[in-house]
Amino acid sequence: MALYSEKVMDHFRNPRNVGVIENADGVGEVGNAKCGDIMKIYLKIENDTIVDVKFETFGCGSAIASSSMATELIKGKPVSEALSLTNKAVAEALDGLPAHKLHCSVLAEEAIKSALKDYYDKNGIEYDRGIFPDCESCGHCCEI
């Protein structure tokens, strides 16, 4: 069996929504170069809907594929739906990830949450802090 599913390879080779949104309504960046992956998500939000999303990723094949898939899953969706996107949903949509690569899907979830939090903060929208766990809480790379 190959390392990655065909879906992972497809999203890795032809990533959707790569790029930058100038004057984005929300920007989130998670991970660090030390542990080998950084994801940055840009959101354009209108009427509580994600009308556009772009990403930039430094990382392995599954990190790029996870970012691509995550952006596809939230594009055109209401903010509330994007907020409830789980890493599991990202991994499943990619037809699975190898066990030691699951953290890439976690990173994708965190990147989107971080961008949404930025959107809330910028617009002074009240929110329950509990829905935004600290990046550090996952502990997948901050040990280094």
């Binding site: 430094f58 392995c60 094949g61 990190a63 790029i64």
Partner: peptide, 11 residues
């Protein structure tokens, strides 16, 4: 600098 090895290998 600025890239990650696995992606490089796969491409």
């Amino acid at each position: 600098e600025g890239i990650e090895g696995e992606s490089l290998l796969l491409l």
